[in-house]
Design a protein around this nucleic acid. Structure first.
Length: 270
DNA sequence: CATCGGACCTGTTAGC
DNA sequence: TGCTAACAGGTCCGAT
């Protein structure tokens, strides 16, 4: 479900309910996420005040004085802010109970998400080695071009490599390559500097716009207030295999690249 | 080091 | 209608 825009939408949705509140309890109903939730976690945050909620790549970081909770939504995770008395439903694995009478509830059917911890001043291994944020300084076409030299894997896989740039998953990789006019199968090292500049621009524009639209809701993504995202209506490539290209009318091609469904226009993308 | 395939899970959907 | 297989937004790990 969640790529950078969905995670950022989630961050913006939960932050106003969390910041400044005291955590009364962390309740774990099912520890078996991507990594087992530490038994020590509830004790680390109980009684702490939330100082901020930030995002790094697709991770949400809930900061308290002694350290940060690290939350990843995996493929199917979502966070909702609910009243304390709301009965848990299937796959509601973790609750963060606040002194406001509200609860931040984590639901994740596939359990590819995680709840981790990093003490203040330390960087957890999952956050080490990540590439630049696409919407901040330090990300541009020259960087992509430099990193791509000698790489023979498809440019789509390269773009989804979180060590290259973070936050771009299967949906937005397809969209950015479509808008930049680049064939997703092309070897990363065989894309020109000029075209990487166009690709970097496309990545930035699409992610920023998708955030404005509240992310992409394909089947089940909901913001913490229960609102779906509206970017789905603007997808030009993802999920449109066989349908006519919105630019030239040619049927879009679909093929698995790196075991991920990929769609592109054989005429517009070279 | 780069690349590939498999692994982790469950729910939904396409196809017979 | 009912069953089965394929597929789904992510990322880590081990083998090559």
């Amino acid at each position: 479900m969640p790529e950078l825009p969905e995670v950022e939408t989630t961050r913006r949705g939960i932050a106003p309910h969390l910041v400044g509140r005291r955590i009364e309890a962390l309740t774990v109903r099912n520890r078996a996420l991507r990594w087992p939730v530490s038994r020590a976690l509830p004790g680390r945050v109980r009684g702490q005040r939330v100082e901020g909620v930030r995002r790094r790549a697709k991770y949400l970081l809930i900061r308290t004085e002694p350290g940060e909770l690290i939350v990843h939504l995996g493929m199917s995770g979502s966070l909702r802010v609910l009243g304390r008395g709301t009965a848990p439903r299937a796959h509601d694995h973790v609750d963060l109970e606040l002194d406001s009478g509200q609860v931040l509830r984590f639901n994740d059917p596939r359990r590819f998400g995680c709840w981790l911890w990093q003490p203040r001043g330390r960087t957890h291994a999952v956050l080490a080695g990540l590439g630049p944020e696409p919407l901040e300084e330090g990300f541009d076409g020259d960087l992509l071009w430099k990193l791509a030299q000698g790489r023979r894997a498809p440019v789509k896989n390269f773009l989804m490599d979180q060590r290259v740039v973070v936050g771009v998953g299967n949906i937005y990789a397809a969209e950015a390559l479509f808008r930049a006019g680049i064939d997703p199968r092309r070897a990363a090292g065989r894309v020109s500097r000029e075209r990487y500049a166009a690709l970097a621009d496309a990545v930035r524009a699409i992610l920023a716009h998708a955030i404005e639209r509240g992310g992409t809701t394909l089947r089940d993504f909901l913001a913490p207030d229960g609102e779906p995202g509206y970017f789905e209506q603007e997808l030009l490539a993802y999920g449109r295999g066989g349908e006519p290209c919105r630019q030239c009318g040619t049927p879009l091609r679909e093929l698995a690249i790196g075991q991920r469904a990929s769609v592109w226009c054989p005429r517009c993308q070279r």
